[in-house]
Design a protein around this nucleic acid. Structure first.
Length: 456
DNA sequence: TTTTGAGTTGTTCGA
DNA sequence: GTCGAACAACTCAAA
């Protein structure tokens, strides 16, 4: 009897425990046939912008190719379609990697119930994380709310080595398939992306491990250099598993810094799993009382931010990188987010929604918790008066102005670090917008608003 | 239960 | 230009 392997955010063959489980189940039933399935759920398609949908489509093509063209793609509601495919294949079990997101976990319970009505099982094996959310707990059984203690406990908990490949791949069931892209967009959208798919992810990891990892601790914050791993979108789609990365890290300082970045991804997944409502509301409920600027002009300021026209070069470069590439350097994500929340006094949810749409690596847990961290309502234990200065940050992390000039053509006439302060350079950048706000004034305004909710 | 120590990523001011 | 202190007194985990 065949089994179903339902792919979601685990678009790979190697180090895939659910695949091994699906194959074992099929063999136990005297068969070696596995039906690989992906459901293009409109709910997920509609939340993603062009670059993320393009990434998904290319990743599905790559996966389909490694499965000999056998990937079954259905368009619509998984609650209906997964049981339908299972029934049509005569499968007793559907195998997945567990989804711990608010939507995915609810959807999976619904699918599980419908399957059970016809005597079929949903089997969860593994997850997109080295340690499943909910596993790392304090002595009293509750969740960690501070990163460093979580990190220590997470390392202490440990993780499995990568899953070995099966001795033989399953006989993938060949089946007619729908288009490998969300409805309403071309099957091969015209978006400029780096190579996508499992093979590309493994190549990227190899290149980074050999050429970039040793200097990671030193260079990861530099916006003008390629000092980061660029693995975020591969991880988001499960083209590579964090176990695969962790297995090759040692105790050296740079490796430890990289391990800690992986741990942030796991921490934020844990926080969201324990507090699903924090995808939309303040993790610290006091922040619901925060005063925001939502009167006339707020929409114009939001658009200036979104389109990279705030008059602050480091902020504008980041926002234009996001528009052009569907990706932004992590350091610049913090600075642009801080600017929206603390200089424009707009709610973090608004910026988070745009990031989720535009980012090709858009991950609900990392994105929303990262925004909450910046807004002060999240898991940051530091004092609230830590407010990023967009100019100082630019001078520190793009010291020669190269990053700013790469994404803001109006500033290309300004040499070196002066590109971060065009207002001191006379008329050398006539087409570049004036500063939207006075940072020093808005900083004071933010501090006052924070004080008001901390000491009501 | 109480106490203690530490907390991703900062900024500004004045010497 | 560089350095240390002040910011304001919080939250959390563990001893």
């Amino acid at each position: 009897m065949p089994s179903i392997l339902w792919f979601r955010r685990d678009l790979r063959r190697h180090d895939n425990p659910a695949l091994v489980a699906a194959l074992d189940a099929a063999r136990d039933d005297g068969d070696g046939t596995v039906v690989p399935l992906f459901v293009l759920d409109p709910r997920l398609c509609n939340a993603a912008g062009d670059t993320r949908r393009a990434w998904l489509s290319r990743s599905l093509h790559a996966l389909d190719a490694t499965l000999g063209g056998a990937l079954v793609v259905r368009h619509g509601d998984p609650t209906l379609l997964v049981p339908e495919v299972a029934a049509a294949a005569g499968a007793a079990s559907v195998h997945v990697a567990a989804d711990f997101g608010p939507y995915g976990a609810t959807r999976d319970r619904a699918v599980e119930n419908v399957l059970a009505a016809s005597g079929r099982r949903l089997e969860r094996t593994g997850s997109p994380y080295a340690v499943a959310p909910g596993r790392v707990v304090k002595g009293d059984g509750t969740a960690y709310r501070v990163y460093t203690p979580f990190y220590r406990a997470w390392v202490e908990h440990g993780w499995r080595p990568p899953a070995a490949d099966p001795d033989a791949w399953p006989d993938w069931r060949m089946d007619p398939s729908g288009p490998l892209a969300c409805d309403g967009i071309p099957d091969a959208p015209d978006v400029d992306l780096p190579p996508v798919g499992e093979a590309a992810a493994l190549e990227r990891w190899d290149a980074f491990r050999i050429d970039g990892l040793a200097a990671y601790g030193e260079l990861r914050d530099r916006a003008d250099l390629a000092g980061t791993s660029s693995l975020s979108a591969h991880l988001r789609w499960g083209e590579i598993h964090p176990r695969t990365l962790l297995a090759e890290l040692d105790g050296s300082p740079s490796h430890t810094v990289f391990r800690k970045e992986i741990a942030w991804r796991e921490f934020y997944a844990d926080v969201l799993h324990r507090a699903p409502e924090s995808a939309h509301t303040w993790l610290d409920p006091r922040f619901a009382a925060m005063e925001h600027d939502d009167g006339p002009g707020a929409d114009d300021r939001f658009e200036a931010w979104r389109l990279g026209r705030t008059g602050f070069p480091f902020v504008d470069a980041g926002m234009r990188q996001l528009l052009a590439e569907g990706w932004m350097h992590n350091r610049v994500r913090m600075v642009t987010a801080s600017f929206l929340v603390k200089d424009l006094h707009l709610p973090w949810q608004r910026g988070a929604r745009w990031f989720m749409t535009a980012l090709r690596d858009g991950d609900l847990a990392s994105n929303q918790q990262g925004w909450q961290w910046v807004a002060g309502s999240g898991t940051d234990a530091a004092p609230y008066f830590r407010i990023f200065n967009p100019v100082t940050q630019g001078l520190r992390f793009d010291p020669d102005g190269d990053y700013v000039r790469r994404y803001v053509p109006e500033l290309r006439g300004l040499g070196g670090r002066s590109a971060h302060e065009p207002w001191t350079q006379g008329q050398l950048a006539p087409d570049y917008p004036d500063r939207l706000v006075d940072h020093a004034e808005e900083r004071d305004e933010s501090l006052a608003r924070y004080t008001a909710i901390k000491n009501p």
